[in-house]
């Protein structure tokens, strides 16, 4: 088994996000970038597949600032090989189809037969990568994956739905998985292992040709109406309770 894990650096949303001058992106000059949390789980699950079923693990990322360090940390975590994919250009918050177009050829060229990535990112307004990659590769895919087990003739994948409902799905051939949570929390990688991995230089591969079809574009970004801190409800207990219930109804959070 050869597992490719797609890792993405995303803005740390604990940070203050400012909108760029162009108005359709955040100001990336100053924002802290971190590994997408779900990708972290995808990497963990891939390493678990390596440990449980002897899979070889290749971590893949689109080239960019901080990607070497990101991929080195993947080595420290247990990835066997790290590859960064070069590409010409992507618009801000790019369409999943465009990203999938860049990645799909390289993943196929690597000979991967299972692709794991995070189920979503804070900025994938253009769609989620796992399903888009599945469509591009012509492979089945599963989102919201919470654990993968090797089986004699493939993989057994747990897919989670709302309300605690889940299914166990058997996948016989190549498959793309959008991981929500790994079978166990992402392991900690000690500073000494990270320091050892600093020497690793990721391989460079050219991505596939740019996506030709029409795609959705983010035209502008804006801060939501309510700023930091709580919007305070005024009035007595009845008035507050009314507003509370109205909010729950609006957000679809009423029980039932």
């Amino acid at each position: 088994m050869h597992a490719a894990v797609v890792l993405r650096l995303v803005p740390d949303i604990a940070d203050d996000l400012e909108i760029s001058e162009s108005g359709n992106d955040i100001d990336r000059e100053w924002v802290g970038m971190k590994l997408n949390e779900f990708d972290d789980h995808a990497l963990e699950e891939a390493v678990l597949l390596k440990e449980r079923a002897g899979a070889s693990v290749t971590a893949v990322a689109l080239d960019g600032d901080g990607v070497d360090k990101l991929l080195q940390s993947a080595i420290a975590r247990g990835a066997d090989r790290v590859v960064k994919i070069t590409y010409d250009e992507l618009p801000p918050l790019p369409a999943a189809a465009a990203v999938a177009a860049i990645l799909a050829d390289a993943i196929q060229a690597l000979g991967a037969d299972v692709v794991l990535t995070g189920v979503q990112t804070p900025e994938d307004a253009g769609g989620q990568l796992a399903a888009a990659l599945g469509a591009r590769l012509g492979w089945p895919h599963l989102s919201a994956v919470a654990g993968v087990q090797p089986a004699p003739d493939g993989l057994i994948v747990r897919q989670e739905h709302s309300g605690g409902y889940a299914t166990r799905v058997h996948a016989a051939g190549p498959v793309v998985l959008g991981v929500q949570s790994a079978s166990q929390p992402p392991r900690y990688v000690s500073g000494s292992k990270l320091r050892q991995a600093i020497g690793v230089k990721p391989e460079k591969r050219a991505g596939g040709e740019a996506f030709a079809g029409p795609v959705a574009m983010v035209r502008r970004l804006a801060k939501p109406a309510s700023g930091g801190g709580a919007a305070m409800w005024k009035g007595d207990a009845d008035a507050v309770a009314d507003q509370f219930v109205a909010l729950l109804r609006e957000r679809g959070l009423l029980k039932g």
Binding site: D15, Y188, G191
Partner: peptide, 19 residues
């Protein structure tokens, strides 16, 4: 583990942005 990971990433245990 959180504190360690935060420190690897941001240089402080709370995971607050360095800035």
């Amino acid at each position: 583990q959180d504190a360690f990971a935060n420190m690897q990433r941001t240089g402080n245990s709370m995971g607050k942005p360095a800035r």
